[in-house]
Amino acid sequence: MSFITVNNLWKEYGDLVVLENLNLSVKQGEFCTLVGASGCGKSTFLKMLLGQETPSRGQLLLEGEAFPGEPDRNRGIVFQRYSVFPHLTVRQNVLMALELEQKPWLGKLFGRARRSALEKVDAMLTSVGLEASANKWPHELSGGMQQRLAIAQSLIMRPRVLLLDEPFGALDPGIRKDMHDLLLKLWRETGTTIFMVTHDLKEGFYLGTRLLVFDKVRRDPHDPEAFGATITYDLPIGQADSKLFEDINESVAETARHQAA
């Protein structure tokens, strides 16, 4: 059985159709990258996977069951910014995830339990390359390090699904490469199912196992809100040729122009 199933999914905000007729089936452990023009509903799709938004029509199923209606510990998220807590140090940020789980009322760990939790935390920090910054505040970190922290914080919960919304969009191109390697490494180690939105088509072609292109197939020049985007390409990574890349690139750019007009 497929892990995540999307059947005839629509999302509308009033008269604005964001997504139309989405169909998708994802196996556990896949790494899907989502690309498409800005404003075509990629974040909205992630929000539905997260439980922050509900579909207007159609089905969204996790192992055959409807998705829970609010965020929970099975689905981690990394945003472009503001994903870490500014009032906690790097170590405390990751430790908090374990504390919340084990202490519903106090929200804090002490003594042996705390020490063993900290061991896990430090191992996680090492694996994302933040061991030297464990006692720093988030505002003392570079953008790339903050994103590493956000990823560590999510992954220590061992979520079944990890959602990333343009996580490297604000980073320098040089740092992005390191982050790709890190993400691939963590994905192989944990086997988590990943959905990552990126505005960089190259990134989408390079990372992960599956590329999903969100685009509008129908356009009404007089009413840009009338039609939503859907998945126009669903490609296994590594098999696309450069001609296809150009085609997709062109189509997405076209949608972006219409959206802007």
């Binding site: 922050q52 965020p71 929970d72 945003f79 994903s83 995830a97 789980e101 919960m157």
Partner: peptide, 11 residues
């Protein structure tokens, strides 16, 4: 984003 994030940590 923070509010969503802490919920995904199970809070």
């Amino acid at each position: 984003e923070q509010l969503i994030k802490i919920q995904t940590l199970g809070a």
